[in-house]
């Protein structure tokens, strides 16, 4: 039903969250329930931020199928997550000083994404991290 790609630029702190806003707007226009959009907004914002502050940017792909299943794929360009178990632990963060000063680095992003999404899959290697989440609309 709908397919779209968005670029996320490495270390572009000014525009962080822009893609997530666009995604939310597009899904609202299609007519999705505000409730599910709020969950999607939380997940996509956290994932988008991670691509900017922890990775070298990348691509976000959105797919909406005919049954209303919304799939979001966050594909960054590395450096990957060395220890996924640690990364998924609430409160664990490697955010640098700059990110922390802006209010990032609570170590809650991935946990939040997992909590609000219906499916959650993460694959990571030094070449990049691919996070795939979906929502039943």
């Amino acid at each position: 039903m709908l397919n779209k790609d968005f670029e996320v630029v490495n270390q572009d702190y000014q525009n962080m969250g822009k893609v997530s806003s666009q995604i939310k707007k597009m899904l609202l226009e299609i007519g999705f329930d505000p409730k599910i959009l709020r969950r999607i907004a939380v997940a996509s914002y956290e994932a988008e931020i991670n691509m900017v502050i922890h990775a070298y940017g990348g691509n976000i792909h959105m797919d909406v199928d005919d049954d209303g299943l919304i799939t979001l794929i966050f594909h960054d360009l590395g450096p990957g997550i060395p220890d996924l178990t640690k990364a998924m632990t609430p409160g664990w963060s490697t955010a640098n000083e700059k990110a922390r000063n802006l209010g990032f680095g609570a170590g809650m992003g991935l946990v939040n994404i997992k909590r609000v999404s219906d499916t959650f899959d993460i694959k990571t290697s030094p070449e990049g991290t691919i996070l795939t989440i979906s929502f039943k609309g």
Partner: peptide, 18 residues
Amino acid sequence: DLLSWVMANGKEKQIWIT
């Protein structure tokens, strides 16, 4: 002031103090 905490726990139409 921790954005992911706000993302997780804030609710629509609330006033946000930061």
